[in-house]
């Protein structure tokens, strides 16, 4: 079964999308404070969806504030038994 560490994947995605190096991400990191513009954020979401083969509904994304929230959403959408940590 798949194992996903959200902060690691997030940092990879941010690097790929906007060339931004993000250190010290944790579950409590507030995404809106990372200085990614709104387009970059959505590209990042696309990156997650592609990598994990999931679809994150817009109305759920609107409620995501922290890396942990994103983790919770990913966890809910991944097949049962996948390990999602943050």
């Amino acid at each position: 079964m798949a194992t996903v560490h959200i902060p690691t994947l997030f940092a990879q995605a941010a690097l790929e999308v906007s060339g931004k190096k993000l250190d010290n991400l944790s579950g409590a990191t507030v995404i809106s404070k990372l200085g990614l513009d709104s387009v970059a954020v959505m590209e990042l979401v696309a990156h997650f969806e592609e990598k994990l083969n999931i679809r994150m509904p817009d109305e759920d994304l609107a409620k995501v504030q922290t890396v942990a929230d994103l983790g919770g959403l990913v966890k809910r959408l991944m097949p049962a038994g996948s390990e999602v940590t943050w």
């Binding site: 507030v30 995404i31 809106s32 709104s38 954020v41 959505m42 979401v45 817009d58 994304l61 609107a62 409620k63 995501v64 504030q65 922290t66 929230d69 994103l70």
Partner: peptide, 9 residues
């Protein structure tokens, strides 16, 4: 416009 961005509620 709908709420779209992460964490700007």
């Amino acid at each position: 416009y709908p709420p779209l961005s992460l964490g700007k509620l």
